[in-house]
Design a protein around this nucleic acid. Structure first.
Length: 793
DNA sequence: GATTGCGCGATTTTT
DNA sequence: TCGCGCAATC
């Protein structure tokens, strides 16, 4: 027997050693699923199966990276490098990078993230003369996304009776039309959104049998993690790929299916046994993660869901601590309680920050925990906030790179055409877009042939300069790597300089972020290629596609000693010694949006199950009597899920308000009684306010320090004054600036003293660039702003 | 072109 | 309450 098989229990070993033919692993929470998957891959390779022939699909990049790492460890060599392991999206993006031309996209197609998609939708909605207040881009987007994930194209969408009825009912009959226009625009832009990565992959395999055969032959062994969360497209693609060899292994747990909003259907896992003959089914039912108390509570709650695959999850672990159920007065008290408890647990049980996780239903709940943790000086990190790549300055920079790689990308082109300012104004851009639409050519083509469209001489010159610059960047693509191109872009566009000259607090942060971006491109460029066989492309195009699929959860630094804050969704697949599940209240968890049907409610319950089963040793569930929502205090009841938990594993506590409630578990009895009575006299808002004071304090001033210095996860910046105030001289009289010269010293009423660097713009609309002593470089329109000429420099 | 001030809507969850 | 889009000013 191989060494690596020794640490497995009977069922795990059974799953690992099943080599050929379909295999379904029903893996309960904490049952060693990742171990089985990685060991199985190692086993396959040990049997002589080539790494190039193995495909493993996961739901996060992080899960993929972890798998790779663990396989390498088992094998003791780096053969794992050649495995195709990744998320559905990233693996398909990589394949499409070689094949997209077949379906009319450039191979260097752009990947649109959610923001890009919404922005294109907004454009399209306006072009159709529809009201974007009524056809809200995000509503429309989710509708289109659902359709794509269910393999429903624009044509079918428009004719499907049921879909049309739904749209009529919500009074949005034009969604079909928008869908059609949106798809056409994305295509014209040479861009795919997240859903397209799946949809176009499917179309590719459907339309080109030779491509299908090639990949069927290549991926002789297919493994899919979190199968319960696959949607229709994903299901169909894997079915196509697996059809030739039927060596497909899926791992899932129907009790942890929490992505139906993304089109995932639990049917896929239930269907699996019907799709193939002789499906081997292995159930992993021993939990190695959690204490008995925790597991029993989870099991008991999930029993309230109907139609589960029968399984009996058990553990040999100790009974452990009871689950602490804690009620607080407000969300701020909840934050304080959690921070206090973390501090106390660190002292009492010698935990590190990294042993704690705070899990919530919605991202918006993180605020009170951030504040209390910061106040206690406990380092933390929020996962799933605004990603680094979503920041404006980063998106601007990346937009240049995107256009360089794919000139069809109108979305990016519009973003940068006049940024930094180069005299191609709003009106000009509107004209350009109209020309492009009229002639059915791309915006870039209009720019290239600008001479034919009768622009004014000045405008034409600006356009031509822009085109020349972009062509210069493009000319480097062939022989320069991603980093070199990016550096040139930064230089020639003045982007970097512009940010450098902005000396405000935000300006500095933006400059640092762009530097950070350049560093990351460099790092990526220099990271090792695959040793043999496929060389991982280090082109700019490959880089851009890659980063769009990154989320900030992916760059988790395991070693960082920080408390982790994230949504329950983001916590799936992770485990922590001590877990706080917070905000366990009606309307929040279960969410008010999800209590209308049994299906929705059951998904919320599964989510609760996922949350509870993340904990290894200690679990705290907290909920607040009232919380601030949009500025007012709103009352909530305890979540119904709490009633479903077996009492004998629960320790109920009331952690009152204020800072002096440490170790208040002693008064559990009376608190419990008060809870039973529904908190009697604290039940009205007036007394809550009276006792706990007015709404939360204003954000602290500029002294607020981020706990971590990494730019991508800085807590929200306090708003520092944008302009360093200048008090105009008493004798301030605006000068006649018609003969202003570069080099002259001037005073501005608000910006203070500065030196004129250059003059541009037309005679009737002159613009001066002035470098102010206190506020950096500004462009000043002389027609409006008043400058006093102080003298020669 | 850039800044400021006002009014309004927002909270599910993610690749 | 907060952040964003839009209109009004410099």
């Amino acid at each position: 027997m191989q060494d690596y098989l020794k640490g497995l229990n009977k069922e795990q070993a059974e799953a690992v050693t099943h080599v050929n033919g379909p295999l379904m692993i029903v893996a309960g929470a904490g049952s060693g699923k990742t171990k089985v998957l990685t060991t199985r891959i190692a086993h396959l390779m040990n049997l002589g199966i080539d790494a190039f022939n193995i495909l493993a699909l996961t739901f996060t990049n992080k899960a993929a990276a972890e798998m790779k790492e663990r396989i390498e460890k088992i094998l003791g060599n780096s053969n794992a490098r050649n495995l195709y392991i990744g998320t559905f999206h990233s693996v398909f993006a990589r394949i499409l990078r070689g094949e997209a031309h077949r379906i009319g996209y450039p191979n260097s197609f752009t990947i649109y993230d959610t923001d890009d998609s919404r922005s294109v939708l907004k454009t399209v909605i306006n072009e159709l003369n529809l009201d974007d207040k009524h056809y809200k881009p995000n509503v429309v987007h989710s509708r289109i996304s659902q359709a794509k994930n269910a393999l429903v194209g624009p044509a079918e969408y428009a004719t499907d009776h049921y879909i049309q009825q739904e749209d009529m009912r919500s009074n949005r009959p034009a969604i079909a039309q928008i869908y059609q226009a949106y798809a056409a625009r994305c295509f014209k832009n040479g861009a795919m959104d997240f859903d397209d990565l799946l949809l176009k992959m499917y179309e590719l395999l459907q339309t080109f049998p030779e491509v299908l055969h090639r990949f069927q032959h290549k991926f002789k062994y297919i493994m899919i993690d979190e199968y319960q969360d696959t949607n229709t497209v994903q299901y169909q693609i894997t079915k196509l790929l697996a059809a030739a060899n039927e060596n497909i292994c899926v791992v899932g747990d129907d009790a942890q299916s929490i992505y139906s909003f993304r089109g995932a259907t639990i049917e896929n896992i239930l269907q699996f046994q019907k799709d193939y003959d002789d499906v081997k089914v292995v159930k992993l039912e021993q939990n190695y993660r959690s204490s008995k108390s925790i597991l029993n509570v989870a099991n008991e709650v999930i029993k309230n869901n109907k139609g589960q695959i029968p399984k009996d999850l058990w553990t040999d672990n100790e009974e452990g601590e009871k689950i602490k159920l804690v009620r607080t007065m407000t969300d701020n008290d909840e934050g304080r309680f959690v921070a206090d408890t973390i501090q106390e647990q660190k002292l009492r049980n010698h935990y590190y920050n990294r042993d704690f996780a705070i899990l919530y239903r919605t991202n918006a709940q993180s605020r009170s925990f951030e504040e209390s943790l910061r106040r206690m000086g406990i380092a933390y990190k929020i996962f799933g906030g605004v990603s680094f790549y979503q920041r404006k300055e980063i998106k601007d920079f990346i937009a240049y790179l995107r256009v360089v790689v794919n000139t069809r990308d109108e979305e990016a082109l519009k973003r940068i055409i006049n940024y930094p300012v180069r005299g191609i104004g709003k009106t000009t851009i509107e004209k350009i877009v109209i020309f492009a639409n009229e002639q059915n050519i791309t915006v870039w083509e209009v720019l290239q042939r600008a001479g034919e469209f009768g622009f004014k001489a000045g405008t034409l010159e600006s356009i031509n300069n822009f085109v020349t610059m972009m062509r210069y960047f493009q000319s480097m693509l062939g022989d320069k790597n991603a980093y070199d191109v990016a550096v040139q872009v930064g230089k020639h566009t003045n982007l970097v300089k512009e940010l450098f000259n902005d000396k405000t607090v935000e300006g500095l942060a933006r400059y640092e972020n762009v530097q950070e971006l350049l560093n990351s491109i460099k790092e990526w460029t220099e990271s090792p290629d695959s040793e043999e066989g496929e060389v991982i492309e280090k082109s700019l195009g490959a880089y851009l596609q890659q980063i769009t699929l990154l989320t900030d959860a992916d760059d988790d630094d395991e070693n960082a000693d920080v408390v982790k804050l994230m949504t329950i969704h983001a916590a799936k697949g992770l485990e922590f010694p001590v877990v706080f599940v917070v905000g366990v209240e009606e309307t929040l968890f279960p969410s008010a949006m999800s209590i209308n049907t049994r299906e929705e409610l059951e998904e919320e319950r599964r989510l609760f199950y996922v949350a509870v089963t993340r904990a290894k040793a200690r679990l705290f569930l907290t909920y607040a009597n009232a919380r601030y929502r949009f500025g007012n205090l709103v009352q909530n009841e305890a979540s119904r899920f709490l009633d479903e938990m077996p009492e004998q594993y629960i320790d109920k506590t009331y952690a009152g308000g204020g800072l002096h409630n440490k170790g208040s578990f002693e008064n559990a009895g009376s608190a419990y009684q008060r809870m039973q009575r529904g908190f009697g006299d604290y039940n009205d808002m007036a007394s809550v306010e009276k006792r706990y004071g007015p709404p939360p304090a204003k954000k602290a001033g500029p002294e607020r320090k981020p706990v971590e210095s990494k730019p991508s996860y800085m807590p929200p910046q306090a708003t520092a004054p944008k302009v360093v105030e200048h008090k105009p001289s008493a004798d301030f009289v605006p000068s006649d600036t018609s003969n202003l010269q570069a080099g002259q010293k001037v005073e501005h009423q608000k910006f203070g003293f500065g030196t004129v660097l250059k003059l541009e713009g037309s005679a009737h609309n002159p613009i001066a660039t002035v470098k102010f002593e206190l506020n950096g470089e500004k462009k000043i329109m002389l027609n409006y702003a008043k400058l006093r000429i102080v003298g020669q420099d």
